[in-house]
């Protein structure tokens, strides 16, 4: 059994990284919104799903026009990011901002609103896709250029070209986000709003505008993650966002919610753990408990983290004032 585990290990680690990068990109959307608004944006999983659907549609309609697969993917990523980002802004404008204006102090109200928005977006996409193509399951069109594969270390790791693309794109996005948040004026404004909204507005920052842009950036990242998700897993549907969304939130909590490097780290760690248990649970339990229980493991990790290190891996403990 040990030998079996060791033989699979390099492949498991590699696949875990791909899953981890996708979780990291979604988790950033959760963590940034939580940073500025202290709101769990449940609708973010649907923003991710909308990005994935946009990617599928671009592949469907532009594949005959654009012969180069890489160029097509680039277009899909841009379109996915734009559609998802704009949806995120719209959601903020139409659902969360009116609530903020009214000054509701009850934390449950925005949370339940977010759940409502999430339902609405799921079924809206289902309706649109139903009317447009009369399809529930959307299949990503396969493009020859992107279907290659090669092996490393004498066949120990099997790598698809797609996986390399996912890793390159997500590393670029994560690096870009880090640069944006730490080195630009907009990033400084976002950090200021996250630290203290009312003081930031005294310093000449328009909080509404910054919140809107935070939603745009988080949504765009989620959209890119969606396109990459659709590229790898090929079949999606309007309800596909729920599990990646809740696990990305787990990743954000794991890293320390509100903390941007934490969300990246949390995503990678959760991706590794989930892939690890998904592969090894059937081997370790002699087939009695299958891969399906990997989600259970993810949620148990969430509970343990929250119980024993509520501030997360990289977060700082905030003392509660009475």
């Amino acid at each position: 059994m040990l030998e079996q585990i060791l033989v699979l290990l390099p492949q498991v680690l590699f696949d875990g990284f791909i899953l981890g990068f996708i979780y990291a990109m979604i988790a950033l959307g959760y963590t940034m919104v939580y940073g500025v608004l202290e709101l769990i944006n449940f609708a973010h999983s649907e923003i991710f799903m909308i990005g994935a659907v946009a990617g599928v549609e671009v592949f469907r309609y532009l594949a005959p026009l654009i012969p180069n697969g890489y160029l097509l993917l680039a277009v899909a990523v841009v379109v996915g990011a734009a559609v998802a980002g704009l949806t995120a802004i719209l959601v903020e404008r139409m659902a969360y901002r009116p609530l903020r204006r009214r000054g509701t102090t009850n934390r449950l109200v925005p949370l339940v609103t977010a759940i409502g928005v999430s339902f609405f977006l799921q079924d809206l996409v289902r309706l649109i896709e139903g009317l447009w193509h009369n399809e529930f399951f959307l299949r990503m069109r396969t493009i020859e250029d992107l279907e290659g594969a090669f092996t490393l270390f004498g066949g120990a790791i099997f790598i698809q070209t797609k996986s390399v693309i996912v890793i390159v794109v997500s590393v670029l996005m994560l690096w870009g986000l880090t640069y944006l948040v730490n080195r630009t004026k907009l990033g400084m404004a976002i950090r200021a709003v996250a630290q203290d909204l009312s003081t930031a507005s005294l310093m000449g920052i328009n909080p509404d505008q910054i919140i809107s842009r935070t939603f745009l950036i988080g949504g765009a990242l989620g959209g890119v993650a969606g396109v990459l998700f659709a590229l790898i897993y090929t079949t999606i549907n309007p309800y596909v966002g729920f599990l990646p969304g809740i696990k990305a939130f787990t990743a954000a909590v794991l890293g320390g919610i509100g903390n941007i490097p934490g969300a990246m780290l949390g995503g990678l760690v959760l991706g590794q753990l989930e892939n690890f248990f998904g592969t090894y649970l059937p081997i370790l339990t002699a087939g009695n408990f299958g891969t399906e229980y990997k989600d259970v493991v993810a949620f148990l990790i969430l509970i343990f983290i929250l119980l024993f290190r509520p501030q997360g891996l990289l977060g700082q403990m905030v003392k509660e004032k009475v």
Partner: peptide, 22 residues
């Protein structure tokens, strides 16, 4: 508390569904 309780109960609810399924 609060949001964390919401997300953990959501996760555990999902665990029950996974158990029923498997």
């Amino acid at each position: 508390r609060g949001d964390y309780l919401a997300i953990v109960t959501l996760g555990l609810g999902e665990v029950v569904r996974i158990l029923a399924n498997n």
